[in-house]
Design a protein around this nucleic acid. Structure first.
Lengths: 154, 154
DNA sequence: ATCTTATTGACAATGATTTCCATCTTCATT
DNA sequence: AATGAAGATGGAAATCATTGTCAATAAGAT
């Protein structure tokens, strides 16, 4: 289990209990994998990774858990146009921090960038505020992506 | 056909011939439907709409044509998280102009907004320039969406 | 009018995600 | 520590958007 070699339960422990969810082996294993992966794994990739350490896991459970984690705000779900959803931890000790994505339409490579993030966040904050008021919309999330060709694909 | 009651061929005629594509009945019908719809239709919705005026159309052709139009830059393809791609004319006489989307995660409603678009575009331009240089990335497109709950769903 | 070749449509195939349901865990309560 | 109710699980089957196949058709250059 994730915190066997640590001083206490992992940071998401409280999140779970707080939302009324049960802290199961599958969920811990999935979150554990997500917190160690730096890419943008699909459900199946997460399944395969979890399967290495917890072979009893089922793909269905992975899908269900990911859905749950998205609802709980612990992870983000992205569509990079390759026909499968991809996931990423939204925050946490090992998080690389808020970032957006550059998507290569040639090879599918994803580049996380944090450049200009401050200006982007600032503008998003303003826009979010204005839109919320004008359209009576409760904004919970935003998405910014740039699509194009990476160096290798040009 | 689209231009039967008009003075000349529709604006996309040249685009097609210029790219070496053939201007077929199916393609005209699909573009015609797209230029009249103000929502964000899925491939099947487009198929059903075209089918009313041109019953011989096949769903496969709709998918192929949409793919083609995306490549040609005539339409944009979006994923609003409901499991099917949605399409929208990128420009043209009846276009509402450049806009971004507000996606309700409750009922799936999409709101097109143009507020703050100028600031957004300006920031995107700067960001795009910086990212292109830093990552040697040729950016062809961007995506901005806000997700949340609309008035009815709160 | 003819010919070359892109395009089409019906059907089958694919593949990610969901549904079903009987069984197993979690954890609040004893 | 034992119990029990509700939540969670996993394997197989089902769903459903999208893509591949291929013989037949139509666009448009000649």
């Amino acid at each position: 289990m994730p915190w066997r070699d640590d001083t206490g339960p992992p940071w998401w422990h409280g999140k779970f209990r707080g939302c009324g969810y049960r802290l199961t082996v599958s969920r811990q294993a999935i979150l554990d994998v997500l917190s160690k992966i730096t890419e943008h794994p699909s459900a199946e990739e997460i399944y395969l990774e979890v399967h290495k350490v917890y072979p009893a896991i089922g793909l269905t459970t992975v899908y269900r858990t990911l859905e749950l984690l998205v609802q709980a705000g612990l992870i983000f779900k992205f569509d990079f146009g390759d026909g499968r959803a991809r996931y990423e931890l939204s925050e946490g000790p090992k998080s690389i921090g808020h970032h957006h994505h550059l998507v290569c339409i040639g090879c599918g490579r994803i580049i996380d960038y944090t450049d200009f993030i401050d200006e982007e966040i600032e503008l998003l904050r303003k826009t979010k505020k204005g839109l919320s008021k004008k359209y009576n919309f409760k904004i919970t999330n935003h998405l910014i992506q740039f699509h194009g060709l990476c160096g290798k694909c040009q």
